[in-house]
Design a protein around this nucleic acid. Structure first.
Lengths: 250, 250
DNA sequence: CGGGTATTTGACGACTGTCAACGCCAGTGG
DNA sequence: CCACTGGCGTTGACAGTCGTCAAATACCCG
């Protein structure tokens, strides 16, 4: 596991309005409200290269982010150095929020691909929340949704087999990418920038076993997995194996 | 797995003020604020017998509860009927809150022991939150803490061994019971109303393997486990095995 | 082309689940 | 008081999933 440089890689800083994804962003309301002040508060849009950390668990949680472009992996580090994935953030997702002042991040975030994020100071967010009920509710809802996802992960890791967890994870990503109109071709082809090691981190498996499960899904004709891409041949089976339900799990 | 009767068992309904635990309740502020209206809104204190459900996943989330007395198990049900424990709630804990109107519970709650709870209508809570910033913050903090616990569970289930997870769970409960002054004797003796099956549900293990792990901890002199009771002989080892850290995990 | 990273595969072993049986205990009813 | 009963805890034998170790191959990028 290589050491990654800290956020030295941030380059550029352009106005949030230039981001095309913005219209779809879950967190659009805050982006809108905040826009007027964004420039003068020196909070704006950042770019971060793939494989670099956005923030790290244990560090003071000074900023939260809306992901505008790219894929982001949220994970928590075990004492032996291994990592447990918590969630993949996709464009529009709001990450790194801490409810209290002077808190530390509970997890780390690493860019899977090159990403573009819009940063907010936590302190500013708290101030906004106190003023604006709609935004307060929206943030609360986002947190509640994330909590439900987290509970689903607990259920999956505790009760499901490796194959079920892999299938669930892929099915869930397929579902979310579809909602973001990020599928290719006839809709069965999805971009998949995660390495098998990352997929293993998300599902609590070693890279080797992740590979074996993928091979089985491939042999069973459920999907085709290549670098950077997965083609879902038998979507019904994938959903069935993973027991994926679009709504309740988030 | 036997079928449990629904909340038919609720008996009595007395004023919240009679509960001695109240002074320590995390959720005391709301209890205070809410007290004046509690009676007229027909929201008050319930009793529920051990092994009976307080609420169930998928049902409309009409109420949230502060646990005044007893132990409560939060869990989520897998499609095969097995259950994955999410958390044990102890006196003072606030459970069942849903951020949105017209939501369903994401998980179920079952009384481990006989319990006493103080119920709040979700709609009323939402109204209170909109009026009172302090309470809004407090609920948000409770949710944030629960989220951190949930992330810890994901890490544990994904990366830790059975022995580590059991040790962690016991160490965590020991820590929380100590804070509530619910330990017996010299502080090494803790009440433990969970069955081994429930402990297995929390740690993602079968009852049989849970038993084997407990035997090992017993043979290694770490603890003594009996029905309804655990004596922690070697607290340092327990914490070390489970990699339990009091603060960050909640 | 060369070097590093990711994927793939096989052999082996450890951890955990499954199945089955038995013992213990508390509560119940005769 | 005692036998009965059901739930829980305990144990052993066995099987299967998954991790570990090691090596080979494929891919990407300079």
């Amino acid at each position: 596991m290589q050491k990654l440089k800290l956020n030295e890689v941030r380059q550029g800083r352009t106005r949030c309005t230039e981001c095309p994804i913005r219209q779809k962003a879950l967190f659009q309301v805050i982006a809108d409200e905040y826009l007027a002040e964004a420039e003068q508060r020196r909070v704006g849009q950042y770019r971060l290269a793939a494989r670099h950390p956005l923030y790290q668990e244990g560090a003071p949680a000074s900023m939260a982010y809306t992901l505008f472009d790219g894929w982001l992996l949220l994970y928590r580090t075990h004492s032996d150095g291994s990592r447990q994935g918590l969630r993949v953030a996709l464009p529009g997702d709001f990450v790194g929020y801490a409810a209290l002042d002077d808190t530390c991040y509970s997890h780390s975030a690493m860019a899977i691909t090159d990403i573009t994020v819009c940063g907010f100071r936590q302190a500013d967010l708290h101030a906004i929340i106190d003023h604006d009920l709609d935004i307060a509710r929206q943030i609360t809802n986002i947190q509640a949704r994330y909590l439900a996802i987290c509970e689903s992960n607990v259920l999956g890791l505790g009760r499901k087999s490796a194959e079920q967890r892999i299938a669930f994870t892929i099915a869930e990503l397929h579902h979310r990418l579809k909602a973001l109109d990020m599928l290719h071709g006839d809709g069965s082809e999805m971009p998949f920038p995660l390495t098998q090691e990352m997929l293993g981190e998300l599902t609590g498996l070693t890279p080797v076993h992740t590979n074996r499960v993928l091979r089985k899904l491939r042999n069973d004709g459920v999907l085709v997995s290549e670098r950077q891409r997965i083609v879902v041949n038998d979507h019904a089976r994938l959903v069935e194996i993973g027991e994926f339900q679009p709504d309740p799990a988030g």
